[in-house]
Design a binder for these strands. Structure first.
Length: 882
RNA sequence: GGGAGCAUAGCUCAGUUGGUUUAGAGCAUCUGCCUUACAAGCAGAGGGUCGGGGGUUCGACUCCCUCUGCUCCCACCA
């Protein structure tokens, strides 16, 4: 078969993926083998593949394919996350574009639209993963809102409620006025934001609600909330304000009288030392309010607009209201001054809206006991974080965790299974009928119609924390006492989890909690935390910056194998990835290299009569050893999750060792056939190399492996065993390296003297050069080898370790130049020798350093001495001949 | 404000309990080659004293202190 000189991934990738699918190579069922399990970090169901997914899923796939080739029963479970707030937002926007307002729909109607949207867009990202080559067990594809998975979520809620871990209460929550829901603390991003610090005059009341001419100044960033002020607070120690005690002041514009209170919370050295207390709209103020029994007046509505309780500016958005009230305050003479002020402001992770601290009734899950166990799981090493610097971060979070606000004021998600009785009492049960049974124990006359289910849904993470359990067994979550089903018993705990550090707490920590609670075992052994993919300039990839390439376009342009290799090249664990398209080009180039090596090897004609040349025999022996050495290295890298190192080891083995040295050493002369021994060995090596490359570049390796020999139907490289390391001879590997150095030395001389590679040269050797590898030198350097004798001053000289090599070149030697070169080298060696000797003459060194270290120094000394000797000899000879 | 981490060739990174490293790789750069697998290639070459300073040690890129710069996480000073 004639292959083109350039590899075209478009011709192979879809073909082989379809082949893998048809043969169900990705599918796993429990059997007697050791399982290797990974659950996918489920992407948002409506998500589109971005570079972060590419990195994550490439790593996952490499690990899964490697494990599969190591003989394990590999299972990678794919799926998607319903992502309640993100998806609901998208649906709301889509409906808005069609002129439909969410408020005008019933819950059922809205959900119908949402499901329709999910059906339409839900599969996209999983199909994109197929393009990347992901070897997921698609038969096991799950969605966090699959009916059975939702049941598991509901059962979990009921379980924790009955355990007393879930409670309902009014708390200051992070309100997202755009998403119209509470969000958890973790979903709030604090960003330093420049705003204004307004200094406002509050006049002292005369006792009858009229202002006197005395006033105090308070500093605030939120003048639009003054109408909700419940008091002005000073520090009791603050002498400046002693006179204020017991007085009342008037809120500007609305002239409402509020008391002066004292609380040590107020910092005397910040602002003016007077704090306006607004319990409904600030967490601290709320706590002060609780301590001092202040009334709570909520003047901001769900959308972030002032409500009628504000009395003024009713219906205005909080930020518009701020601008307007400042003007009003100024006109009323209440504005002392304003200054620029930078402070951290909370933003919603999903909608980027400024978070409004707001009091509301929410459901919470107690975290202390769960967090304690989850911390222990990591501290004890039951779960290993890679890189382990994240243990510190993890510990800090787990020790300072607050109760988890699990209710969301949304429709898309699992609806909270709490049912209210007409009298306000609440019962919690998995189904309406069970809830009715419970309710009837309270009041036997109740009917189903009397029960009202809670309107809220659960936080998305309240379903995804069950993922490693519920993808296998939907009954176990919520029922720790139940027997796990066959799949769960076999696949759990999973082996490795690959995810980003940004969801270490959102997801990873909570999965550990759920695993401990329901399985009494952690959900995975290793958590490999990838970096964030950034652009060349180190900026996070984002839609708004437009610096995020479309992976599918890249795959089309370079092939999935190239994209995978390009991503892995720069991805050491835990470090951010600075993505640059040139890395993908490098991946494509490597593809092409493999392709062309294949063209060369398969283009050879076996000559049954030919004897194996000595150089070939040496090269075969060497590469056999080298291969084992690198397999060992690669396995070691894999065991430490040093994927990019493993990749580089394979890359160099193929390109440098196999192509640049081995193939050149065994390549038959033009037009000649190759002997059978060498050919068979070469094909064997190629086979091993393809297997080593396969986890990283699955497509091209399958294509070539299939073409390398007759394959039976249903055969695939992905189910072959990974090459095993045999004992190898390091001495021989070193000897071959010396041969390579000798070849390089000759090539160097050719280059500097402008000599053609076709022109054969003499190579004279002085010293202990391993004779076994000489045939390779002879072939690759195109030289005739002999021992050096007599005067070598008319030769170009170089050294391989301690062996001197001469290429006699009468008439071509520039004596002056050679002398200068040798003198430089001599000076260097002399200096080196001095430093070694200084060490050796230090008694404390010789006495304290380990024997081996001292021996090394002695070897350095003797090597250096022998080099100096040979340099001196050559130098003298040159000088004498001058 | 608290905590963590990073700083090694032009770029991205290795350097595994301090000693065969007066430091390695890939990419990029430079030089010479269209040599019959591959110019997406081949053959060579140059390039850093390990952010600054101090200390411990026979010996430090590696340990300690300090300064500088960057990054991330956490955080209720209005």
């Amino acid at each position: 078969m004639e292959l083109p000189a350039k590899y075209d991934p478009a011709l192979t990738e879809d073909k082989w993926y379809a082949y893998w699918l048809e043969n169900k190579f990705f599918h796993s069922e429990p059997d007697e083998r050791e399982p290797y399990t990974i659950v996918i970090p489920p992407p948002n169901v409506t998500g589109i593949l971005h570079m972060g997914h590419v990195l994550n899923n490439t790593l996952n796939d490499v690990l899964v394919r490697k494990a599969r080739m190591d003989g394990k029963n590999a299972c990678w479970v794919p799926g998607t996350d319903h992502a309640s707030i993100a998806t609901e937002n998208k649906v709301v926007q889509k409906l808005a574009a069609e002129g439909i307002k969410k408020e005008d729909l019933t819950r059922e109607q809205f959900l119908e639209h949402a499901w329709e949207w999910k059906e339409k867009h839900g599969g996209i990202i999983l199909n994109q993963l197929r393009k990347l080559g992901a070897s997921c067990d698609w038969d096991r594809t799950k969605f966090t809102m699959d009916p059975e998975l939702s049941d598991a979520v509901i059962n979990t809620f009921v379980y924790f409620y009955n355990k007393g871990y879930i409670y309902r209460g009014v708390r200051m929550v992070n309100w997202d006025p755009v998403g119209l829901t509470a969000v958890s603390d973790e979903e709030v991003i604090h960003k330093d934001t420049v705003s204004k610090f307004y200094h406002l005059r509050y006049f002292i009341s005369d006792g009858n609600g009229n202002p006197t001419d005395k006033y105090i100044i308070i500093a605030t960033t939120r003048p639009e909330t003054i109408m909700a002020d419940a008091a002005i607070c000073i520090n009791p120690e603050d002498e400046r304000y002693g006179w204020l005690k017991g007085q009342k002041v008037l809120i500007p514009l609305i002239n409402k009288e509020i008391p002066i209170i004292e609380d040590s919370y107020v910092a005397m050295d910040f602002g003016t030392g007077c704090l306006k207390v607004t319990p409904a709209h600030d967490v601290n103020d709320y706590e002060i309010g609780m301590r001092h029994n202040l009334p709570v007046l909520d003047i901001i509505d769900d959308h972030g607009r002032l409500n009628e309780k504000a009395q003024i500016l009713v219906g205005e958005d909080r930020f518009d209201a701020r601008k307007k009230i400042v003007k009003m305050l100024e006109e009323a003479g209440n504005l002392e001054k304003m200054e620029d002020y930078t402070s951290p402001i909370g933003y919603s992770e999903r909608t980027n809206a400024v978070i409004e601290p707001r009091l509301s009734m929410q459901w919470f899950l107690k975290m202390d006991a769960l967090a304690k166990d989850a911390l222990e799981s990591v501290e004890s090493g039951n779960v290993k974080l890679i890189p382990d610097k994240y243990r510190n971060t993890y510990r800090h979070w787990m020790e300072n965790v607050r109760d988890w606000c699990i209710s969301r004021q949304l429709w898309w998600g699992q609806r909270i299974p709490a049912y209210y009785l007409p009298n306000g009492q609440v019962v919690v049960a998995a189904t309406e009928s069970e809830a009715l049974t419970l309710a009837q124990k309270i009041d036997a006359d109740l009917t189903a119609a009397d029960l009202r289910q809670d309107e809220d849904v659960l936080d998305t993470w309240f379903s995804s924390w069950l993922w490693p359990i519920s993808v296998f067994d939907t009954n176990k979550a919520g029922h720790p006492e139940a027997e796990p089903n066959k799949d769960l018993a076999y696949y759990y705990p999973t082996n490795d989890l690959v995810t980003g550090p940004d969801i270490l707490f959102f997801w990873v920590a909570r999965m550990i909690m759920a695993g401990n609670e329901f399985m009494n075992d952690v959900p995975f052994r290793n958590v490999y935390l990838t970096g964030i993919v950034r652009d060349k300039l180190g900026r996070k990839m984002s839609k708004t910056l437009g610096n995020s390439p479309d992976p599918l376009v890249l795959i089309e342009k370079y092939g999935a194998d190239a994209v995978r290799l390009g991503m892995l090249l720069c991805s050491s664990a835990g470090n951010d990835i600075l993505y640059d398209e040139s890395q993908i080009e490098q991946g494509r180039n490597f593809n092409n290299k493999v392709w062309n090596a294949f063209r060369l090897v398969t283009g050879w004609n076996v000559d049954e009569a030919a004897q194996q040349p000595e150089a070939s025999a040496v090269a075969v022996k060497w590469f056999d050893n080298k291969l084992s050495q690198v397999v060992e290295t690669v396995n070691d890298h894999f065991s430490k999750f040093r994927i990019s190192d493993a990749l580089m080891a394979i890359y160099k083995l193929f390109w440098d060792d196999f192509c640049a040295w081995y193939l050149e050493a065994v390549k038959p002369a033009y037009g000649a056939g190759i002997d059978k021994d060498t050919y068979d060995a070469t094909i064997g090596f190629f086979d091993a190399l393809l297997k080593m490359i396969h986890p990283i570049m699955p497509f091209i390796t399958e294509e070539l492996w299939q073409n390398m020999a007759e394959r039976k139907a249903g055969e695939t490289i992905m189910n072959q065993r990974y090459p095993q390391a045999k004992p190898y001879d390091t001495e021989f590997i070193t000897a071959f390296e010396m041969a390579c150095e000798a070849v390089a030395g000759v090539r160097n001389i050719r280059q500097s003297k402008n000599l053609s590679p076709r022109e054969s040269l003499d190579l004279k050797i002085k010293g202990a050069f391993p004779a076994e590898v000489l045939p390779v030198v002879v072939k690759l350097a195109n030289v005739t080898v002999a021992e050096a004798e007599g005067d070598m001053s008319a030769a170009q000289r170089f050294m391989v370790r301690t062996v001197e090599m001469f290429v006699p070149l009468t008439g071509l030697i520039n004596v002056e130049e050679e002398i200068a070169k040798l003198e430089t080298e001599l000076a260097y060696q002399q200096k080196f020798l001095d430093s070694v000797r200084k060490k050796l003459s230090n008694e404390r060194f010789v006495a304290n350093a380990p024997e081996a270290v001292v021996a090394v120094e002695r070897k350095k000394e003797s090597d250096s001495l022998s080099k100096i000797e040979s340099i001196t000899t050559s130098l003298n000879a040159l000088k004498n001949n001058k």
